[in-house]
């Protein structure tokens, strides 16, 4: 028995929604970061599913790009978080509001 492609897409959508919910609701910046990764990988899953369904390898190529960019993003993002933590001893998103108008 083969699993139909739409199931993968549904899983991807669930993962994306879960990630978005996490980013919006969690206060810890590191958890927000993890949720963000979840969203990115949900998109990756969609790419791969469509690549398989449409027989087009382009989707899989895109995933590589996303992975590379995500890795770079993690480096920069974690660097920023470490820098903030050193200065303010907190990684709670709501406390980091010095740019408040």
């Amino acid at each position: 028995m083969t699993i139909p492609g739409s199931w993968y897409l549904v899983v991807a959508a669930l993962l994306f929604g879960l990630g978005a919910f996490g980013v919006l609701t969690r206060r810890n910046v590191i958890v927000m970061f993890m949720s963000l990764e979840l969203m990115l990988n949900a998109v990756n899953l969609t790419f791969v599913s469509y690549a398989r369904m449409l027989n087009d390898v382009g989707g899989q190529v895109d995933v590589f790009f996303v992975l590379v960019v995500a890795a770079a993003e993690v480096v920069v993002g974690l660097g920023i978080i470490v820098a903030i933590f050193r200065q303010r001893a907190t990684v709670t998103a709501d406390d980091i509001s010095s740019l408040k108008g």
Binding site: V23, M32, L99, K100, G101
Partner: peptide
């Protein structure tokens, strides 16, 4: 300036 609350999560909410 009221829009600029400084809360990252509310920015994200507006973005979404």
């Amino acid at each position: 300036r009221k829009v600029q609350s400084g809360l990252v999560r509310s920015y994200l909410l507006i973005m979404v």
